[in-house]
């Protein structure tokens, strides 16, 4: 649990921490747009290197951030495999004949079972998973005797491979960028920045202050509600609810026994909170002064100029067609 870095603020001190949250939000958006415009392998690697440089100069642990992406490894791998297997455009790079016979299908099935049973004892699960996948392909390729149910090919096309690569690196960069933002910005500051950026939307009758207030209060109460949910689960477990086991029908009752109290508590809380806010002279929509104000510094101007230049560069490269 504690190693997850996505979405968490980790106190520290570097230029990233000193930047105005507005700058960070805008810069992140600019860089993300840039990453989507990149079309060559070389430029993509440069982008990845640059992002890593930001981490290094921002005194964030590169290892920690990239290891923190681990929960997303399966998502990344899935996207990669999906593209490689189903995108069949461009030049054929590699093909492998596959035979679907009763024997090798059942062997493949056994490999899956074996993998499922043994994976919890293996340290390098990802490698083990890859090994299992390769093993299945090897089986399907090499055993061709017995009752043959069908034939197929595993083929890798140039376009598939490159699209897969681009999607994966883009995802990694985007997630890293947003992680940089959340690691270095307190939720309150982030919220304040968001409010400030959304303010022009008043023309569309969107009240940025109210949105910010709602986000702030949600941030404030999420830990409290989680704690509450945990308590109720324990209380219901004491009444014989076994959250680990049970048939579908039991599951439904288990969920109800958790959700109904949670709803009631949440309503009670929001009612109390509304009263407390009103009693302290809060009037929705009324002008308020603010304790926290955002300060724009030279650093922000520089940072924004750099990111704008980077984006402009990417656009130029795209137009020129390198």
């Amino acid at each position: 649990m504690n190693r997850i870095v996505i979405g968490r603020y980790i106190p520290g001190n570097s230029f990233l921490y000193r930047m105005d949250p507005r700058t960070k939000l805008i810069a992140m958006i600019l860089l993300m747009v840039g990453v989507f415009l990149i079309q060559s392998f070389l430029h993509m690697f440069v982008a990845l290197a640059l992002v890593t440089l930001i981490l290094v100069f921002g005194r964030l642990s590169v290892k920690r951030v990239y290891l923190g992406l681990r929960p997303l490894v399966f998502l990344l791998m899935f996207t990669f495999l999906f593209q490689v297997l189903f995108n069949r455009q461009g030049e054929l790079l590699y093909s492998l004949a596959l035979h679907y016979t009763i024997l090798n299908l059942s062997l493949a099935f056994m490999v899956v079972l074996l993998w499922g049973f043994t994976k919890r004892f293996i340290r390098f699960r990802l490698l083990y998973f890859l090994g299992a996948v390769v093993g299945i392909f090897a089986l399907l390729h090499s055993i061709s005797f017995g009752v043959v149910l069908g034939e197929g090919t595993f083929a890798v096309y140039e376009q598939g491979l490159s699209t897969a690569f681009f999607i994966m690196v883009r995802l990694i960069i985007i997630i890293t960028l947003s992680t940089i933002l959340t690691i270095t910005t307190k939720p309150t500051d982030l919220n304040l920045g968001l409010e400030s950026i959304l303010r022009p939307l008043r023309v569309l009758r969107i009240n940025a202050e109210e949105i910010a207030m709602i986000i702030a209060i949600s941030l404030r109460y999420i830990p409290t509600l989680l704690e509450e949910a945990n308590k109720i689960m324990l209380a219901q477990a004491s009444r014989g609810v076994d959250f680990q086991e049970g048939k579908l029908k039991d599951k439904v009752i288990q969920v109800v026994s958790l959700l109904v109290p949670m709803f009631i508590i949440s309503f009670q809380r929001s009612d109390d909170l509304a009263n407390a806010m009103e009693a302290r002279s809060f009037v929705p929509g009324q002008e308020r002064t603010r304790l926290h104000i955002l300060r724009w510094s030279k650093l922000d101007t520089v940072a924004l100029a750099c990111t704008s230049l980077a984006l402009a560069g990417v656009v130029l490269l795209r137009v020129v067609g390198w």
């Binding site: 939720p187 309150t188 702030a216 209060i217 941030l219 404030r220 409290t224 009670q268 809380r269 109390d272 909170l273 407390a276 806010m277 302290r280 002279s281 809060f282 009037v283 009324q286 002008e287 308020r288 002064t289 603010r290 304790l291 926290h292 104000i293």
Partner: peptide
């Protein structure tokens, strides 16, 4: 209920809440 009237994300923010509503200068 102490938990249901704490509006701010920190102690400082919470004490500020009423003052912000009264439009007290920063």
């Amino acid at each position: 209920n102490p938990d249901n009237q704490f509006v701010g994300v920190t102690v400082r923010d919470d004490i500020a809440f009423g003052l912000e509503n009264l439009q007290i200068p920063r």
